[in-house]
Design a protein around this nucleic acid. Structure first.
Lengths: 235, 235
DNA sequence: GAAAATATGTGTTATAAAACATTTTTTTTA
DNA sequence: TAAAAAAAATGTTTTATAACACATATTTTC
């Protein structure tokens, strides 16, 4: 029998009021629940690799996950950061393609995988659910297009500032109201911002010297959100 | 009474075997047909602007359209090139947002707009259609993510080569089997490839001197597809 | 707890591509 | 068809950022 913990992870997804599955009928939820698998990933573990075939809809129940693509000479570009209640790899699933990027847990994470056939069965009989899913994807496509422009046109400072704001947006702040609730390596921060690790380090230091942020190892505090937004917008 | 021409443009969309609307019932097609508007745009005309509110699903019946975003300092980045039987602005429609980019006709174009409410009505009652639409969008999201990496990581030569191949892919070749069936300005080519116009011109000349392509004004011929692909892949 | 591996920090150099400046050609308009 | 405007072409300079090199922490592993 599957562990209680796993059932909780799946429950969390199906019954959370903010989940797109929330309005489903009990029968539909049961169909999904009966065809789910939960998995725990340790920090640094690979959830899927570019080229793998999706088997279902991966729902992140807890933890943090980066989705990235390998570019020129194996250089990594982080495409998206996933937070609890988010989907992972759903693009490839719905495009009926193999994964076009890889997913790695940035900290210990629990995912719940809704088996593809069961999900499709429910979606085919529930167009509203499908519409909600589509809305989610349309939203992400907008973010992706915006990111393309930011990453290509903004200068290093603007790109890094945008990444910091993205992290705040995705993971929020700690109780102190300033520390970003995400502890990335400088390398990940660089790969998120399309720059070399050296430049991420350097620019981070500059931001600190300008009192935009505070740095304590991987703990980054936002000291001046307004100014940081201005730096992000300026390019 | 609407012009015959307009009805043909809409018919083209609903009844083409490659259209996602093809498998609809006659009743569903009628619902969409009865709630469509067709418009003709001259070369250079704006179809919609960033910030406008979508009123329906814009289907390109004939012509060529660029979809672009304004970035830092008004610098234009072409996000996508649309060809006949493609949708325009559907992302914003399904995300229920205002347009996040603008669309301009690159040559005289005819579009058929399926009114939002009618479309939603049909989609809500036809999950298969919604799934097909979602597949289309998932596909585009993949392209967008790939483009982000290409545009940020590849060097100028790689980016321009990729753009030329994208144009071949989207619009095909003329009867001679080599001329790209799309006649963009150097500026558009640059905005598609994330570079300055000067650099697009220069790199195009270099490609010609290397016998990768032939240039005759805006008429670009592919002389060595294999090599061009290699240039694109090399970064 | 020493050794190794990994991550962070900083200065220097090299370079790809933007910015700028003209000139020439083509297209549009009057 | 002349004049004006726009697009294309090309050379030169500047600059942002990668690449490189090395020093110093910090974490992991044996």
């Amino acid at each position: 029998m599957a562990s209680k913990h796993n059932d909780i992870a799946c429950d969390y997804f199906l019954n959370n009021p903010t989940s797109i599955f929330y309005p489903l009928s009990e029968e539909e939820k049961k169909e999904l629940f009966n065809n789910h698998v939960c998995t725990v990933y340790k920090k640094g573990e690979i959830i899927f690799k570019e080229g793998d075939k999706p088997t279902g809809l991966i729902c992140l129940s807890s933890g943090k996950v980066k989705i990235f693509k390998e570019g020129v000479g194996g250089r990594e570009q982080i495409v998206r950061m996933s937070s609890p209640l988010g989907f992972i790899g759903y693009r490839a699933l719905f495009a009926e393609q193999n994964y076009s990027g890889s997913a790695v847990a940035l900290e210990d994470s629990v995912v719940c995988i809704l088996e593809k056939e069961a999900l499709y069965k429910v979606m085919r009989s529930n167009a509203d659910l499908t519409m909600r899913m589509m809305k989610k994807m349309a939203n992400e496509l907008g973010i992706s297009n915006t990111r393309t422009v930011s990453l290509t046109q903004k200068h290093i400072r603007g790109r890094l500032a945008e990444s910091l704001l993205l992290l705040v947006d995705t993971y929020g702040l700690e109780e102190d109201g300033k520390t970003i609730r995400a502890y990335l390596s400088r390398e990940d921060l660089a790969n998120l911002s399309n720059m070399t690790t050296s430049n991420a380090i350097r620019t981070l230091s500059t931001f600190a010297s300008e009192n935009l942020i505070s740095i304590d190892g991987r703990k980054i505090g936002i000291l001046d959100m307004k100014k940081l937004e201005r730096v992000s917008d300026m390019g």
